[in-house]
């Protein structure tokens, strides 16, 4: 999933300071799962903004809506009936959602309430870790199912570097050395000999070096 974390409330307060009527929009997908911008978080943020306006002696009108998927135009359309009643939109979706809303409703300012972090997997309740960089040319098939691009701090395709210490990355003991993990996994799979295959310099184009990525499926696109 795409992971995110709520921005500091003061930053959000700054964004919306000039506005009285706010449309606060959550998303039912990734940000719900990582507890950053789902219905629950929309409610809590709305309440926090209310408390703030009470202290400021102002009134604020907040309409809370959580869309099924904020990065999809057909769901973003559901905001149409409310958009004219709002001076500003605050989105709790990832950057894709924020931009989808901004693209559809051109006259309303749209502010992000979360910082989008990374593509990650859940390691347990309340813990998410980065697992994919979206490089566009997946190497997991030859690295034992562990990604060196996302999980090696230096993105080494021929690791490990000399900084590994007690099996952990040189950046700190809380980060596993990806190449230690790859090696252990290759051994488990009886594929140790694969380790000495040289991995060629990566073509970074599919992952964004060639410009913003775009996928067009001829059979689906209209």
């Amino acid at each position: 999933m795409i992971t995110a974390e709520q921005k500091p409330i003061q930053e959000i307060i700054q964004y919306i300071a000039p506005y009285g009527r706010i449309l606060l929009v959550g998303c039912n997908e990734c940000v719900t799962v990582c507890a950053a911008g789902g219905r629950k978080e929309v409610g809590l943020l709305a309440s926090a903004l209310h408390l703030n306006s009470l202290k400021q002696g102002k009134t604020i009108d907040i309409k809370e809506i959580t869309l099924e998927r904020q990065c999809d135009p057909e769901y973003v359309e559901e905001l149409a009936p409310y958009i004219d009643g709002a001076d500003a939109v605050v989105s709790m979706a990832c950057g894709c959602g924020v931009q989808s809303v901004a693209a559809r409703y051109k006259t309303s300012p749209v502010f992000p309430a979360v910082n989008t972090r990374f593509m990650g997997a859940s390691l347990g309740q309340g813990v998410w870790a980065e697992r994919c960089k979206g490089c566009g040319d997946c190497v997991l098939g030859i690295t034992g199912g562990i990604c060196p691009v996302a999980r090696c701090s230096k993105h080494l395709l021929n690791g490990p570097c000399g900084g590994t210490s007690n099996g952990q990355c040189e950046i700190g003991p809380e980060t596993d050395c990806a190449w230690r993990l790859i090696w252990e996994r290759l051994k488990e799979l009886g594929m140790e000999d694969r380790y000495e295959d040289l991995m060629n310099a990566k073509d970074w184009r599919p992952g964004g070096a060639a410009g913003p990525g775009k996928i067009i499926r001829e059979d689906l696109a209209q």
């Binding site: 230096k154 993105h155 080494l156 395709l157 021929n158 040289l198 991995m199 990566k202 970074w204």
Partner: peptide, 10 residues
């Protein structure tokens, strides 16, 4: 931002 376009072996 570290570059790491290619690694030392490459």
């Amino acid at each position: 931002q570290g570059v790491f376009d290619i690694d030392s072996v490459q």
